[in-house]
Design a protein around this nucleic acid. Structure first.
Length: 425
RNA sequence: GGAGAUGUGGCUGAGUGGUCGAAAGCGCCUGAUUGCUAAUUAGGUGAUGGAGUCAAAUCCAUCCGCAGGUUCGAAUCCUGUCGUCUCCGCCA
């Protein structure tokens, strides 16, 4: 959510930003509504003062007759105040409804464009895509060949899009987790295992819509909690309502959680195998910073993502997301797209990580603030998130890039000591 | 899951209908004092929104977990809700 005053004072920039984000939002009434609301607020506050003054006199009344007379007067003022208040509350709701629809402003350097076609490639990884002298398998064929991935069992047990992982692929999965957590912990991130469920109010604060036709989220019946789609939700929720001191910032967390996504409406998209599933494990980076630290932190998160994928010897490219392709809370977003040799006809890039600077968009809704030590007033922190490893997709990248002619898979060097194996299958 | 208790400012904690944004202590900040590294002393010290100002000062409204209700008036009474603690049950 953007600051109401900011929208009010920068309405044209906000409108332009909406257009750049390819969002059809009519904000014409915003300024009028907010002007009217402010007037009503002042009217209501003035009446409230009158009523308070009147009430104070009652306590000092000389006798019962006078007291009754004063009561009657106070009651009348109170009534007028209630009317003004009700009118204000109605306007306030209308303004808030509009305000909630407004996306974050975009970084001035973010490429402007309608959709992902306008995304800008800004870097590539250390490793180039391999040239294979044999027919490559995709990760699903490999996984099924070795008995590592079982979607049929998943469908039987749970439903379409669920899977079992088995055998050495599990060891690889755990090794990736271990590697990421220990790398992040060396870089000052606190390893954090979060709940896999969160309150709907927290989901909304982060920018997810927990219920409704378009939702990506599984919700729990009869309770106001939902399965999380990412640890970003719980890590943000961890500090909701909290005011920290500037000395504590930046706070860097490494979340470990399962992620659940309904993927409603995702049928037909390139989604074979583990690429688009209902449940996966993710190691997530999350940071709370002071406003002037968030740009640098965002670059750090991007660099860490690059380092991690370089370390597991997977080719990738880095993309600066176009304004039209940014989610509502994001000010700027970088994606790493890993080369997946088994995808499409001759290999394709597929998104494996995403890091966003959400500035104060989430913290305003979640009420996460900081205080400069020794100074008055509080400010909203900036929040940032970034994927370390989404395990399902990281596994695709490793299986497909490191496969051999005999269908075995070479384990990236950094993972070997953790797994105790050089090769699987 | 059952029973009971409880939720006040950075912290401890007083406050059962009006003079309470809220005692007191601690902490913190500023000044004074004593040469001994700390003590004494005076004062100050919350948030949000709004008015105001070049900026301040200042003024107004709201905030005692949260949301409602009763009342001219609520930290105080009522209802709901969330959190915490204790005991019991269950359980990995």
């Amino acid at each position: 959510m953007l600051d109401r005053k900011f929208i009010f004072e920068h309405i044209e920039e906000v409108k332009t930003n909406c257009r750049n984000r390819n969002l059809d939002l009519n904000l014409d009434s915003f300024v009028d509504l907010e002007t009217a609301r402010r007037a009503k607020l002042q009217e209501s506050e003035a009446l409230n003062k009158q009523a308070n003054d009147a009430s104070k006199l009652i306590g000092k009344a000389a006798d019962d007759a006078e007291r009754e007379k004063l009561k009657e007067e106070a009651r009348a003022i109170r009534e007028k105040k209630s009317e003004a208040q009700a009118e204000h509350d109605r306007l306030d709701e209308e303004v808030l409804a509009l305000q909630k629809l407004v996306p974050n402003m975009a970084h001035p350097d973010a490429p402007v464009g309608e959709d992902d076609k306008a995304n800008l490639q800004i870097a590539t990884g250390k490793h180039d895509p391999r040239k294979f002298d044999f027919e490559v398998m995709d990760h699903l064929e490999l996984g099924q060949h070795h008995g590592w991935i079982d979607f049929e069992g998943g469908a039987r047990t749970t439903g379409a899009g669920f899977y079992f992982l088995k055998g050495d692929l599990v060891l690889l999965d755990l090794a990736l987790q271990q590697f990421a957590v220990s790398e992040l912990s060396k870089r000052g991130f606190t390893p954090t295992i979060t709940p896999d469920l969160a309150r709907d109010s927290v989901l909304e604060g982060i920018g997810f819509n927990p219920r409704g036709p378009e939702t990506q989220i599984y919700s729990i019946e009869e309770m106001d909690v939902s399965l999380i789609g990412t640890a970003e939700i719980t890590l943000g929720g961890l500090y909701s309502g909290v005011t920290v001191t500037d000395q504590e910032l930046p706070i860097k967390l490494c979340g470990i959680s399962h992620c659940y996504r309904t993927e409603a409406g995702a049928a037909g998209r390139a989604s074979r195998g583990l690429y688009r599933v209902h449940q996966f494990t993710k190691i997530e980076m999350f940071a709370f910073t002071k406003p002037d630290q968030s740009d640098a932190m965002h670059e750090d998160l991007r660099q860490i993502e690059c380092d991690l994928f370089d370390a597991i010897e997977v080719p990738y490219r880095v993309v600066d997301t176009a304004t039209g392709d940014l989610g509502g809370p994001a000010y700027r977003k970088y994606d790493l797209e890993a080369w997946m040799p088994g995808r499409g006809d001759a290999g394709e890039y597929g998104e494996v990580t995403s890091t966003s600077n959400c500035t104060d968009y989430q913290s305003r809704r979640l009420n996460i603030r900081f205080k400069n030590e020794g100074k008055k007033g509080t400010h909203f922190v900036h929040t940032l998130n970034g994927t370390a490893f989404a395990l399902s997709r990281a596994l695709i990248a490793i299986l497909e890039n490191h496969q051999n002619a005999d269908r075995s898979v070479t384990i990236p060097e950094v993972l070997r000591p953790i797994m105790g194996k050089d090769k699987i299958g």
